[in-house]
Design a protein around this nucleic acid. Structure first.
Lengths: 213, 213, 213, 213
DNA sequence: TATGAATGAGCCTTCATTCAT
DNA sequence: TATGAATGAAGGCTCATTCAT
């Protein structure tokens, strides 16, 4: 009602207690969204997990959508920051570094990763754009690695962008089935996938058409 | 007729008109689930798409969950049937046949494929099991191809199951970004991915560790 | 969610039972809005009055706002229709006819009248416009009576529009304090106000300024 | 000072800053109540207008209801005080004095006046009584003017109380439509209404029944 | 088979108010 | 005096589903 002025929300300056609650909201929402999907999770459930009444959530996030947006943007920011760190620290060839980093990070942060590509469609267009920018930034890392490696003759890829998507899809699929404590360690997974990737982009071996028939 | 005993009266005998409505329900639900996700789609929306009131949907499917289950089981059955046909008709080496088949089918039936792995978690456990059986059956096809090829020395894979998942994840990721009319034709995609897959499983080229440093 | 197609509501074709429920919703809402004001009345209260669950209200009115709009437009339509009938039937001079009609109608339909000018600001702008058009139409009736009477020398008003508003405000204020069974009958009220109005617009007696001091 | 007993500690001693905040709360609430209605205005909106957090309002007014009560009682007190002053200062016959005063005051304090008769029903019964007493006191002024004038033969009213209500309703309706800068000045309005009122209560002209037919 | 109408549960969000800081 | 954080109740509305017609 009241066809009057727009209310300017003006988020309050957070105190220690509030920051902790916000963190617990994030954590509860992450878990629930990953398990049941954004649309199937209610603010009531999140509040119950946090140990707070539903209304209190709105002291920390203006809407449910903002929780999702926060989780996804935070995830992308942390992913990129982690890569920045890894790409400096680890001494390997860039492709190996990327593959190992990606697998490790995606197994450690399975929930974040999962919602980050499962819940894209539940982002309002504006928020979707924000996340997409970061996602493209991440993919560009691998594309550049493949392009540079190709120039140096180390790799041979016909289309670096297609190869990027192929590799990332391949690696990102891991947490969907990998379970700790199975007969494959995380190290095994890294090694197996690294080998597949390396061979896929290796030069000097055009196998196409030859084996047909 | 009037004297036949023991009719199964639970669902009415499907007649022409009902059959068609049911088909339109499936089609509308498929589109909506793929676009917005199972949880975010209401029976009212589906009914509106079909041109019918919500209550009428219950003449064709007992619950919303049953629509999802129907879509996913039908999809898996058709996928496997299509493979049976393709594996007989097409004259290529099995890996190429599988890769080309998978890409083609997944681009043709993008919605079915999409919900089939996005909505798994929205299946009730019982229905989930039914679908999982089919999914494993499909994966087993590629695993067997890789195993037989390995025995024959054509391919070299350290773990055929891991390779299966890697390859399927890679291929299944295509519809997420591929758009008809872009600079790559469907044939281009098939060729590019086929090459990546072939090299990934090619024998005689252990690239590991060598390029490091 | 679901950033997709617009849902076209398509109101159902009403059946007898539904029409009765809708009528009871209107009646309950009328009573409550008049007593407590639109903003202070909840759909739950209306539903309880009607003897139905809140959700059922939405089978008959798309929103709470639509109930208000319906009540106000219906009221204006009925008011104008009643005037059309009265202006044909009753044999009096036009001003008397209007005054007696207005008082009688406004005492009979106290609730409708009351919300019709108390809840104007709770109408969304679009609905407000619809109601305003009718309101102006009603006022025009009195304005025209005063103008014609002035031309004939029966009345003397300096500004027929201002006089219209003055008279209508005066008459409309009656239900705010008049209570049946007090020492004044409805007929008394009619006569008293008619006399005040007649004198106010009577010609041949310019009292201005003379009595000052 | 430090030793004075029996402080009334309920509300803190109003200091400069607090005084000013309270004034701004009154002013914001007045504006909002007039625009949207008491029930449709939230404490959060008022707080935002004032530039303060909702909780801070409770340092100045114990409840939202108290703000309304404060506004209405203050208004009535100021109205009566203004009349006391006007009735001494202005040299005119009492009826003209009252009419001009009422119109002027009601146009100057449109918001106060508006909520004072629109929000009566949102007053809790106890507060309603307090305001009603003042309102009756104000009406009594006009009633007395009419009665005295009648005794002196200056006016002829059949029922001074009814005439009071009729006149006040008529005058009070002005701010609902009058807009500054239109083709009528405030002075024009005063003159037009004064004339209408004078004629309505003028003696020696019984127009009833004569014009009929 | 389809419909209008209803249910009962639940949804996201807002509210007036409280209170430790 | 003001604030950030919380409460408990309630708000309008939507949902999957049922069922007499």
């Amino acid at each position: 009602m009241a066809h009057t002025a727009a209310k300017t929300p003006v988020r309050p300056q957070p105190r220690a207690k509030g920051q902790e609650t916000a963190a617990r909201v994030r954590s509860a929402a992450l878990r629930r969204f990953a398990t049941s999907g954004y649309a199937a999770v209610s603010m009531r459930e999140i509040a119950a997990d946090v140990g707070v009444r539903p209304g209190a959530l709105y002291n920390h996030f203006p809407t449910k959508q903002d929780i999702l947006k926060d989780l996804m943007l935070t995830h992308m920011a942390e992913l990129l920051a982690a890569w920045d760190k890894a790409s400096v620290e680890e001494k390997m060839d860039p492709l190996e570094r990327f593959v190992r980093f990606h697998i490790r990070y995606h197994l450690e942060r399975a929930d974040e990763v999962f919602i980050s590509y499962m819940e894209l469609r539940n982002l309002e267009p504006q928020n979707f754009e924000l996340v997409e920018v970061e996602r493209r930034r991440y993919e560009a890392i691998l594309t550049k690695i493949l392009e540079r490696g190709s120039e140096l003759g180390r790799y041979a890829v016909d289309d670096a962008k297609v190869a990027t998507r192929a590799i990332i899809a391949m690696l990102t699929g891991i947490p969907a089935w990998y379970r700790e404590g199975g007969h494959l360690s995380e190290k095994d997974i890294e090694d197996l996938y690294l080998k597949l990737v390396r061979k896929a982009v290796a030069p000097g071996q055009d196998t196409s058409q030859r084996e047909t028939g």
